[in-house]
C-alpha cells in the first residue's frame, strides 16, 4: 500500500508546485489545495498506514491491536480544518485583489501605489482616514 500512496503524494506535490508557480490567482489557490492534500496523505503514510488496519474506534478496551495509530488522523483533521479556513481567506483575498486591480495575474500588479501610500495606513495628515 505504501508505493501507490507514495506515487500519489509525489504527483500531488508536483501538481501543487506547478500550479502555485503559474501567473494566475485561481491556479495558485488550486495549487495550495493540492499541496495541502499531498501533505495530509503524507501524514497518513508517516503514521504507519497498512491496508489491514482499522479505524481507531475502540469497542472493547481489551482489544486494541490491529487499530491504526490515532495521532496521525488527529493531526490531519486539525490540518484540514486550518488549511480550509486559511484557504478560504486566501481565495477571498484573491477575489478582492482581482476586483480592485482588474487583473488575475500577480505579476501585472503595480509595484507601488503612490496615491495612497506614505509609509502605510497611518493617521497622519494627508493620508486617507478610512472613515465612511
Amino acid at each position: 500500500m505504501e508505493l501507490p500512496l507514495a506515487i500519489a503524494i509525489a504527483l500531488l506535490f508536483a501538481g501543487g508546485a506547478y500550479s502555485i508557480l503559474r501567473p494566475n490567482f485561481f491556479r495558485i489557490v488550486v495549487g495550495f489545495g493540492l499541496l495541502s492534500n499531498a501533505v495530509n496523505l503524507l501524514m497518513i503514510l508517516c503514521g504507519g498506514f497498512r491496508s489491514q488496519t482499522a479505524a481507531p474506534f475502540v469497542a472493547d478496551p481489551r482489544r486494541v491491536d490491529g487499530l491504526m495509530d490515532p495521532i496521525p488522523p488527529d493531526i490531519i483533521l486539525t490540518a484540514i480544518v486550518i488549511s480550509f479556513a486559511v484557504g478560504a481567506l486566501f481565495l477571498t483575498l484573491c477575489y478582492v485583489v482581482y476586483r480592485e486591480y482588474g487583473t488575475d495575474d500577480p505579476e501585472a500588479l503595480p509595484v507601488r501605489e503612490p496615491e495612497d501610500w506614505a509609509g502605510g495606513p497611518a493617521r497622519g495628515a494627508g493620508l486617507p482616514r478610512y472613515e465612511e
Binding site: F32, V39, N40, M43, L45, S83, G87
Partner: peptide
C-alpha cells in the same frame, strides 16, 4: 500557507 504545509510535512 506554504510554511504551514511544510511544517506538517516535517511533523510527519
Amino acid at each position: 500557507l506554504l510554511g504551514g504545509s511544510l511544517f506538517v510535512v516535517g511533523l510527519g
